[in-house]
């Protein structure tokens, strides 16, 4: 099965980390990127770069900022191939955001 691992964290989370912690985070992201079970995904630029688009009544409305006004914002996602939910959860637990006060949401991907 394929799962999306979406990680959320408070903006600026990395600023509070020590040099060594930052390096560890970097290494963990690289490890995830190299994991053969990862089939896709991306880390996202900071939330200040977000732009929202809505179309109502044929008009396109563009606004600044993220969709929801929550403390934690989507930092990126990975799509992985895993045998079952437990395997996906284990991969999710290795995403640094899970450890530094953020959260990783795991959802199965719709099969085509």
């Amino acid at each position: 099965m394929q799962y999306a691992l979406m990680f959320y964290a408070e903006p600026g989370m990395e600023a509070g980390l020590s040099e060594a912690e930052r390096e560890a985070v970097q290494a963990e992201f690289l490890a995830l990127a190299d994991d053969p079970r990862r089939v896709g995904g991306a880390r996202l630029q900071p939330v200040e770069t977000a732009t929202c688009v809505r179309v109502t009544g044929g008009r396109t409305l563009v606004t600044d900022g993220p969709f929801a006004d929550t403390k934690e914002v989507l930092g990126g996602f990975a799509v992985v191939e895993a045998a079952d939910l437990d395997e996906a959860l284990e991969m999710a637990a290795r995403i640094p955001a899970a450890r530094f006060g953020g959260v990783v949401e795991v959802r199965p991907v719709v099969r085509r």
Binding site: M1, A82, A83, D84, L85, D86, A88, E90, V106, R107, P108
Partner: peptide, 14 residues
């Protein structure tokens, strides 16, 4: 069913 929760006894570390 939808999320693939396994029908299994977890591994020793879990």
């Amino acid at each position: 069913k939808a999320t693939g929760i396994p029908f299994a006894v977890p591994d020793a570390h879990r």
